[in-house]
């Protein structure tokens, strides 16, 4: 599904954010990306989500080389992903329902079908009763759940979350993780970046640990659990 082959990413005027990273993420996996702030987690996620292109090496998403993709094909590639940003990136000039509608509008889905799907997505994250509320009135955890609703409304096959629990207390964090868990259960590939590794051991997933741009460990914690959860049809 996602293949990195000796991938290097260098931003102009700085050191390499990622050095010679090779990895392979299968469809239906649940993967954690860990590491300190500035280790290169966000860069890795941006490369996966086709937001950045690698400086060296190849990134294959669903067997398509991101570097060789024409720029007008990039938007369609991005629609395969559901993105959850650390700062939510919610739009504060419209209510929850309209926030969730945005990806559908981009996909050209309108009318009752769009409304139905938006409500279904809000329902999945437990925010259906707040559809008319403005995002600013929501708590931090609720805002993050709204961001998840927006990410999944387009029914992506890959869900990518950058520090989704970074600003949340433990109860909310567990709440968010259980939502990801639910999507993983129905076959969605989930990739979550987090700087604090606590709570991962409880969920027992594959962990990619990045340190100063290098991939240090690429291991599966409790392999048995991983195999049990992989192989869901997408």
């Amino acid at each position: 599904m996602i293949q990195f082959d000796h991938v290097t990413k260098r931003y102009p005027g700085s050191n390499e954010a990622l050095k010679n990273v090779s990895l392979n993420i299968e469809a239906g996996e649940f993967v954690f990306v860990t590491g300190h702030s500035g280790a290169g987690k966000s860069t890795l996620l941006k490369l996966i989500a086709a937001i950045e292109r690698p400086t060296g090496g190849t990134v294959l998403i669903a067997n398509q080389n991101i570097s060789k993709l024409k720029s007008n094909a990039i938007p369609y590639m991005r629609r395969r992903f559901g993105l959850i940003f650390q700062d939510h990136k919610l739009l504060y000039d419209r209510n929850c329902f309209e926030n969730v509608m945005l990806p559908l509008r981009i996909n050209g889905i309108f009318g009752t079908e769009a409304a139905k799907r938006s409500r279904a997505a809000l329902d999945k994250v437990g925010l259906l009763h707040k559809e008319k509320a403005m995002p600013i009135t929501l708590s931090g955890g609720e805002q993050q759940r709204l961001a998840i609703a927006r990410a999944v409304v387009g029914r992506p096959s890959i869900l990518i979350a950058d520090e989704p629990t970074g600003n949340l207390d433990a109860v909310y964090a567990a709440d968010i993780m259980s939502i990801f868990q639910a999507f993983h259960q129905v076959g969605v590939t989930v990739i979550v970046a987090t700087h604090d590794a606590t709570g991962i051991s409880a969920t027992q997933r594959r962990v990619l640990h990045i340190n100063q741009g290098e991939l240090h460990s690429n291991e599966v914690i409790q392999a048995a659990d991983h195999t049990q959860n992989s192989g869901y049809p997408i």
Binding site: N72, P75, F81, L83, K89, L102, I106, G154
Partner: peptide, 16 residues
């Protein structure tokens, strides 16, 4: 600006 940025990130084409 926010809407444009988010839209681009989640796959909006330039013409959209």
């Amino acid at each position: 600006k926010d809407e444009i940025e988010v839209s681009k990130l989640i796959g909006a084409t330039n013409s959209f």
